[in-house]
């Protein structure tokens, strides 16, 4: 089963590497990964599609391990019921002038647009959820797909709910010495010190 995981991350060098390295090391199977800026400067948003191959607990581990990265601010798992999910594709398809009408009809049915055209080809763009995207591509395949590019899924919760960052209160640098239970240096309870 596929899961859509959202990660809000600090927009810093290496953050994508940290996440990708984590997926590689833990053997998580990633279908797609889309990264971009958000409403807030300094924060990027990743949409990660995880295939769990039927193994229980995988997506939970993905969320928890991602959250452990210091540069990852928040992680959420969006199910299709509560979220809008889309991806964008550009498809360059072989298309003679004789075929053009029927290809245009197809693109119209799927609410795509033609963005480039030549006597022998046509490039369409489509924004759709995965099922409709797959159907669109399969319908174009008989004409001969010359090139195909997809952005990977992006997603957002429906309704007024949001995935945004909540600021934490600043914390004392030396709090670990006083509050975490760790005793100040040199004051461990040794039996015969």
């Amino acid at each position: 089963m596929k899961h859509t995981v959202i990660a809000l991350v600090e927009d810093r060098p290496g953050v994508l590497n940290r996440c990708a390295s984590l997926f590689r090391r833990r053997g998580f199977n990633i279908d797609s990964l889309a990264v971009g800026t958000t409403e807030e400067p300094g924060i990027s948003r990743m949409t990660i599609v995880v295939e769990d191959e039927g193994a229980p607990g995988i997506v939970e581990q993905v969320e928890k391990q991602l959250y452990k990265l210091i540069d990852v601010i928040d992680v959420a798992n969006l199910t299709s019921a509560e979220a809008v999910m889309r991806e964008l594709a550009l498809v360059k398809v072989r298309c003679t002038s004789a075929q053009r009408r029927e290809v245009l009809d197809l693109i119209d049915i799927f609410r795509g647009h033609v963005v480039d055209v030549s006597p022998a080809h046509l490039t369409a763009e489509i924004v759709a959820a995965e099922d409709r995207m797959t159907a669109f591509i399969e319908n174009l395949r008989p004409y001969g797909i010359l090139e195909l590019v997809r952005t990977g899924r992006i997603a957002m919760m429906r309704g007024p709910q949001t995935n945004v960052v909540h600021e934490l209160e600043p914390d004392s640098v030396l709090r670990f010495h006083t509050e975490s239970g760790r005793r100040p240096e040199g004051e461990l309870p040794y039996v015969s010190d």
């Binding site: 600090e10 601010i73 909540h166 914390d171 640098v173």
Partner: peptide
């Protein structure tokens, strides 16, 4: 800095 703030 006497305090740090790490939002993640």
């Amino acid at each position: 800095p006497e305090s740090v703030s790490i939002r993640g």
